[in-house]
């Protein structure tokens, strides 16, 4: 019984405590870099699109709100012909970022994307692509992948040997 009274007293003392609430939007909260907000598509250190349209983000998405259609340039490099995110369905779970083998898709600390018209929540590739590397500096998928693309021939990727000369008889 006394503990109840003590509790009541202690709660009453909270009248003089500082309030924890951050008065958004007057005060902007601090969001850590790994906060899961608006999704962006980053570029590799050479300035080219990182996304290779592998569709893994699309299939990892639990609400199926990412649609990617593959394109291929004349050098054989894959890129997303269209990359569409329906943010009106997105739950910002970050699975797409986890699934992305090229670090192209990243979530950013920005959540202020409300709209009155739901159609405006559909973001196209041009809305998503940023000009930087985001949280992953230095990584370029095509530099480690074995496929030959423009500017990187067979054998020029990281830890690759020269293409085999199949005409040679030497062991």
């Amino acid at each position: 019984m006394l503990s109840v009274l003590r509790t009541i007293w202690m709660v009453l003392l909270h009248s003089f405590r500082k309030r924890d609430t951050v008065l958004y939007p007057e005060v902007k909260p601090y969001l850590p870099p790994r906060y899961r907000g608006r999704i962006v598509l980053t570029r590799d250190p050479d300035g080219a699109e990182r996304c290779v349209a592998c569709n893994l983000c699309s299939v990892a998405c639990p609400v199926d709100c990412i649609s990617v259609i593959k394109g291929e340039d004349e050098t054989g490099r894959w890129y997303p012909d269209t990359f569409q995110i329906n943010f009106s369905r997105c739950i910002y779970c970050g699975f797409c970022e986890e699934a992305c083998p090229t670090y192209a898709i990243q979530l950013t600390p920005d959540f202020e994307m409300g709209e009155f018209d739901r159609q405006k929540m559909v973001y196209e590739k041009s809305d998503l692509t940023i000009s930087g590397v985001g949280k992953r500096p230095g990584y370029n998928y095509y530099r480690v992948a074995g496929m030959a693309v423009g500017g990187k021939d067979k054998g020029e990727a990281v830890s690759e040997s020269e293409p085999v000369d199949i005409k040679t008889l030497l062991p």
Binding site: S58, D64, S67, T82, Q84, V122
Partner: peptide, 16 residues
């Protein structure tokens, strides 16, 4: 069973 992009496939035409 894992068909993806169901809520985005035609979203550019109509978000519904």
């Amino acid at each position: 069973h894992r068909q993806a992009a169901r809520t985005a496939l035609y979203a550019e035409i109509d978000v519904r």
